[in-house]
C-alpha cells in the first residue's frame, strides 16, 4: 500500500561530476544590505516590448531587473515592505507585468501582488490575501491557489487574475488535514494535487472545486514537498523531496523521489530515488523542478542537479567565493538556472 519498490539508478562517483555542465551566463549583485531570500524570472513589458526579467527578493524589498545590451543587469523597479518580511516570490505562469510575493515571519501572513501603474511610472502593491497561510502556488491560466487555516476550518482558494487587474475567487473543498504544498498535474487539465501534514496526497477538480481523492503515500518520509506531478497511462507520477530524509543510507543520500500512484485505487509504489553521488554529504534544504530537471540546495551549501529521466545527479555546484548557496530556481521564461547566495549575489547559469 505504501512505497515498497524503489529502484536505484547507478550512482556516479563524485569525481565524474563538475559544474562544467553548467555555463555561467551572467551575475547580478543586489546591494540592498538585507538578507537575500529568493529569485524568480518574469515577463515584463518595458517600453512596449515584453522582456524576460529577473526578480530578486530581500527581506524588506523586491526588485525587478532588466538585462542590458552590455550584459549587465539594471534595477528597474523596487517594492518596499515596512513591517512584514518577504518569505518567497510566487511566480504566476502566463502573467506579464505582475509578480506575487508571500510575506510573513515563520509562516505566510500575507500574499501581495506587485505591479506598476499603467504608464509604468510607479510601483504599486495590492494585498490579495491575509491569514495563517500554509501553502501557495501560481498556476497556469493566470491563477493562484492558497490554503489558510483558522482554528476550526481550512480554506482553499483559487484566484484568477483577469485582464485589467481585477481578480475572481473560487473555493475548493478543503480536506480535514492541513495542506502543505500544491502541484498542478501535467497531462490532466483541471487536476490539482496537494500534499498534507498527515502524509496524504489529495486531488481536486479545479473546475468544479470537488475534492476527488485522498491517498496515503506511506510514513517513510514526513513532510514531503511535491515539486512536480504528471498523469500518464492512467497513473499519477509525483516528484517529492524529503527534508527529513536520513542523511546517509546504504544507497547514498536520497534527495528526491519519484512515486507512481493509481488514483482509482489509491495504491502507490516508489519508482526512483534520486541520490547524491558517492562521497557527497548533505540533505535537501530547498529546490525546484522544471521539465526533467531537479535542482536542490543541500545542507552542505552545494547545489546538485539531477536529470530525472537518466535517474542520476549530473552536476554539482560547490559554494562560490566561500559563500554557501541558499536558494536555487529554474527560470520560468527560458532555460536558465538561477542560483542565489544570502549576501545578494545571483548567478545565472
Amino acid at each position: 500500500h505504501s512505497i515498497e519498490q524503489t529502484e536505484l539508478a547507478d550512482v556516479p562517483a563524485c569525481d565524474s561530476l563538475n559544474p562544467g555542465n553548467l555555463q555561467l551566463v551572467s551575475k547580478l549583485k543586489n546591494h540592498s544590505g538585507s538578507c537575500s531570500v529568493d529569485v524568480s524570472a518574469v515577463w515584463w513589458e518595458i517600453a512596449g516590448v515584453k522582456e524576460p526579467c529577473i526578480v530578486t527578493a530581500c527581506e524588506y524589498a523586491v526588485s525587478l531587473w532588466k538585462l542590458l545590451d552590455t550584459g549587465q543587469w539594471e534595477k528597474r523597479y523596487s517594492w518596499h515592505f515596512a513591517e512584514v518580511p518577504v518569505l518567497q516570490i510566487v511566480p504566476v505562469p502566463d502573467v506579464c507585468n505582475l509578480v506575487c510575493v508571500a510575506l510573513g515571519n515563520l509562516e505566510i501572513r500575507e500574499i501581495r501582488a506587485l505591479l506598476c501603474s499603467s504608464d509604468g511610472g510607479c510601483e504599486k502593491q495590492v494585498l490579495l490575501r491575509t491569514g495563517n497561510i500554509h501553502a501557495v502556488l501560481g498556476l497556469t491560466q493566470r491563477r493562484l491557489v492558497s490554503s489558510s487555516r483558522t482554528l476550526c476550518d481550512q480554506q482553499v482558494e483559487v484566484m484568477t487574475f483577469a485582464e485589467g487587474g481585477s481578480e475572481e475567487k473560487q473555493f475548493l473543498m478543503p480536506p480535514e488535514e492541513t495542506v502543505l504544498t500544491f502541484a498542478e498535474v501535467q497531462g490532466t487539465q483541471e487536476a490539482l494535487l496537494g500534499t498534507t501534514i498527515m502524509n496524504n496526497i489529495v486531488i481536486w477538480n479545479l473546475k468544479t472545486g470537488q475534492l476527488l481523492k485522498k491517498m496515503h503515500i506511506g510514513d517513510s518520509y514526513q513532510a514531503s514537498v511535491c515539486h512536480k506531478a504528471y498523469s500518464e497511462m492512467g497513473l499519477l507520477f509525483v516528484v517529492l523531496s524529503h527534508p527529513c530524509a536520513k542523511e546517509k543510507e546504504p544507497s547514498g543520500s536520497p534527495v528526491f523521489q519519484l512515486i507512481a500512484i493509481n488514483p482509482k485505487t489509491a495504491l502507490s509504489v516508489g519508482v526512483m530515488l534520486y541520490c547524491l553521488p558517492q562521497g557527497q554529504a548533505g540533505r535537501f534544504l530547498e529546490g525546484d523542478v522544471k521539465d526533467n530537471f531537479a535542482a536542490a540546495v543541500l545542507t552542505s551549501g552545494t547545489i546538485a542537479i539531477w536529470d530525472l529521466l537518466l535517474g542520476h545527479c549530473t552536476a554539482l555546484l560547490p559554494p562560490i567565493s566561500d559563500q554557501n548557496w541558499s536558494f536555487v530556481k529554474w527560470s520560468g521564461t527560458d532555460s536558465h538556472l538561477l542560483a542565489g547566495q544570502k549576501d545578494g549575489n545571483i548567478f545565472v547559469y
Partner: peptide
Amino acid sequence: CSQADLGPISINWFEELSSEAPP
C-alpha cells in the same frame, strides 16, 4: 512497477473520480 502492485488502472481516472465525488 507492475500493474499488480497498483490495482486496476483507468486512463479516464479524472473524469471517473469527478463523477463519483460529492459535488
